[in-house]
Design a protein around this nucleic acid. Structure first.
Lengths: 194, 194
DNA sequence: GCTTCTGGCTATTCGCATTAGCTTATAGCT
DNA sequence: AGCTATAAGCTAATGCGAATAGCCAGAAGC
């Protein structure tokens, strides 16, 4: 009987692909084993548990996502960079719903690898905002605002939450343009307080 | 042996409370049965399945949420109403993480009860935006923007996603104020196109 | 060609959702 | 008050998915 020739990263990659098809919650060891032409217990030679598999997918997905975002927003700045960033964010989330869901959890304390991967993505976001000449506090506010808006939008869109008859992409651009205007506005009195 | 005296709504209410404690994903029939002083199979006299229990919690949570939002934003209009709405949205989500997570799924086709509950919440949002004098298309854009921003923010906040040393409430208000400014801005050329 | 290491397998355990079928508390009727 | 029907709760059992134990054989290094 020939072997399947798996290793940890192959299992994680297949898991990520499967999660995109069946949803992160629908990902099971049995299903993944089927997909890889192997029996479920065999997977435990490569990943310690389903939990660990999910975590591996999460870290891997964060890296992929960060690279994709960086690639598509590089060479632009200001509003242009934010629009490119936002569009590729939404695009990637739609193409990879399972991976995207996996990127949600924040790293656990002491998990250096995860922290680094999350940092990578955060850095792209901060780079995109660099062209606005904001104070430190406002950079944080703006990063949180953009990330919240993007995460909320793609999550609701993916859940079928936008039922009204209005083009969703147009609403997306309204949201992004509104935030951009906020980044460009004069800082309010309380911007530097906290 | 005296009976527990349960009924469907008592089970759902206890399930919602438990979900707030252990997370929606951590809610199990066994745990809920313990909480109610009953054996797991007994719950099936009141709810058809764990799935159905979750759905019941979802619909119930949507109603509660809508009422809370309505109560706290009534009697205000314009920016004031949006701020009250946003603050009570965030507050409720923090107080009821399990219920909040349950409100995420959109109603399935043909589920009238769920549709009505979701509609209630949507109506409050639309009422809050009514004071801005927006075109129909812009009302939809604005509703989606506000909902996305709120959902994204409270989800990330709940997941521990805001690690940087900057007061989170301040960032929240920056986000909301930015959106309000967008609702008040002159409609861009493309606002009525789609 | 032989040994060692390691990937994969079968058999098994455990937890949790769910079903079957029994028992009896309780509501409603007389 | 007693009688009966309904339905709430129970025990026992099934089934599925994660995870572990221990066996076996393919592949890599000598």
């Amino acid at each position: 009987m020939p072997r399947a020739g798996l290793d940890t990263s192959a299992v994680i990659a297949a898991g990520a692909a499967l999660a995109d098809e069946v949803g992160l919650a629908g990902l099971t060891m049995g299903l993944l084993a089927d997909r890889l032409g192997v029996r479920p217990p065999s997977l435990y030679k490569h990943v310690g548990s389903l939990h660990e598999l999910r975590h591996g997918i999460s870290v891997q997905a964060k890296r992929e996502f960060a690279h994709r975002l960086a690639r598509e927003s590089v060479g632009r700045s200001g509003p242009d960079a934010v629009r490119a960033f936002a569009d590729s964010y939404r695009q990637w989330a739609r193409e990879h719903p399972g991976r995207y869901a996996a990127t949600a959890p924040a790293p656990a304390d002491g998990d250096e690898e995860d922290r680094r991967a999350s940092e990578e993505a955060l850095q792209v976001l901060l780079d995109v905002l660099a062209g606005f000449g904001l104070t430190d506090a406002r950079v944080v506010d703006s990063a949180r605002a953009l990330r919240s808006a993007l995460h909320g939008f793609v999550t609701l869109e993916g859940a079928g939450g936008f039922g009204m008859p209005r083009d969703v992409t147009r609403s997306f651009h309204f949201l992004i343009d509104t935030l951009i205007a906020g980044f460009q506005a004069d800082p309010p009195d309380h911007a530097s307080e906290g």
